[in-house]
Design a protein around this nucleic acid. Sequence first.
DNA 1: CTTTGCACTTGCATATTGCAAGTAAATTTA
DNA 2: TAAATTTACTTGCAATATGCAAGTGCAAAG
Lengths: 113, 113
Amino acid sequence: MTRAKKRSDWHVSRSLDIWGDKWSLLIIRDLMTAKQCTYSDFLKSPKRIATNILASRLHVLEENKIIRKLEHPDSKAKVLYRLTRKGNDLLPVVIEINLWAEKYFPIPDELNL
Amino acid sequence: MTRAKKRSDWHVSRSLDIWGDKWSLLIIRDLMTAKQCTYSDFLKSPKRIATNILASRLHVLEENKIIRKLEHPDSKAKVLYRLTRKGNDLLPVVIEINLWAEKYFPIPDELNL
DNA sequence: CTTTGCACTTGCATATTGCAAGTAAATTTA
DNA sequence: TAAATTTACTTGCAATATGCAAGTGCAAAG
């Protein structure tokens, strides 16, 4: 195995350790278009994530500095989540996933998207 | 939610349904540098995957036409796995993951990669 | 000062992953 | 050519992660 392959192996697997689960990338993707979300905004997302899982994923993403919490201007009861620079830099990954999916999964008409 | 966001949502989540688990993308990444692998080659990979999980992931990836099986020229006992066009087209995704990881996870010296 | 909304937590069921051992067919070795 | 080994898996069970429903505590609104 080449040095380059080993490095790539390590990089990919380090990345997946953080956001390579069933939900994290969807959370990140949500934040990319929405700029910022509250906890309950995530729960309203079409792919329904369980609230305990959401909490645990947000926690891991925050620990890894991919997202951060902000005070909500309207209320202390609300929390805003936003991508950090590091999180935003995942945009090219999400874009490439979209391009791939667009090519290989034509959206059925009846979904009306 | 905009139409564009919904489409992207759907695309990302359809993609992750197939290869968004803990192992699939590592398998795919292996095949990208190796061109082709046998079952036991995967098992020798530095990130140790359990053999039953490997079998089940390979099965799902094959069903989804991301990889395919080929006869091994040397022996009927061996099987070669290779990426399809569809699988190969995931290369940009893997590249972007690498670029991101390179930026944010400097490899510790002691790993010697 | 009571009710509602928001961001979680808790307890338990179900699903997914991990480990160790086993199997069957093909090949190699004695 | 019979026995040992290699190869690609499968099987059974333990550990971990996810899913669901209900609950908690603080903030704000009525």
